[in-house]
């Protein structure tokens, strides 16, 4: 049939049953070889690549997670420090306020005392002055009276 007439195919070469044992024999050989290649070389290699990639991706993901955690920690710390600083600031404000208040109070007291003293002294002096004036008025009036009497009596 077709196999011994190499110039033209007569009929369908696919239906030339004389070639079947040859085809099937070689196909089985090549399929087995191919299967061994797939099993020994291709699958481990591909799985290796896949696992490698998976590992790298997982590594990056875990790294990102770690960094996220760190960022969170740092944020927390910043918050803590911020609140501490705020508290301290409040404290300082409070104390300085207190100090200022007490100083003002002190100064107020001092000035009050001083004014009171001043007033007292002024009153004393006023009293002295008033007493003095009373006496001199009396003296003056006495003199005046005696002089008037003298004058009146003298002219008579």
């Amino acid at each position: 049939m077709a196999s011994n007439n190499s110039s033209h195919a007569e009929g369908m070469p696919q239906l030339d049953f004389a070639t079947f044992p040859n085809q099937i024999f070689w196909m089985v050989v090549f399929c087995v070889v191919l299967f061994i290649i797939v099993k020994i070389f291709i699958i481990p290699r591909m799985e290796d690549i896949f696992a490698n990639r998976r590992k790298v991706i997982d590594g990056s993901i875990s790294k990102a997670e770690e960094i996220k955690q760190r960022v969170k920690e740092i944020e927390l710390q910043i918050e803590k420090e911020l609140s501490e600083a705020k508290a301290e600031c409040n404290n300082i404000l409070q104390t300085s306020n207190d100090v200022m208040k007490s100083q003002i109070n002190l100064a107020l007291e001092d000035s009050k005392k001083a004014t009171a003293e001043l007033i007292q002294e002024a009153e004393k002096r006023l009293k002295v002055l008033r007493d003095g004036s009373d006496e001199s008025i009396k003296k003056l009036s006495d003199e005046l009276v005696s002089e008037i009497i003298n004058k009146v009596t003298a002219t008579k």
């Binding site: 196999s3 011994n4 195919a9 009929g11 369908m12 070469p13 040859n22 085809q23």
Partner: peptide, 16 residues
């Protein structure tokens, strides 16, 4: 259909 003809290349001219 010529392209589908199976021809022996090695090991003799007759198809074994």
């Amino acid at each position: 259909m010529d392209q589908f003809v199976i021809e022996p290349l090695l090991m003799g001219d007759k198809l074994q």
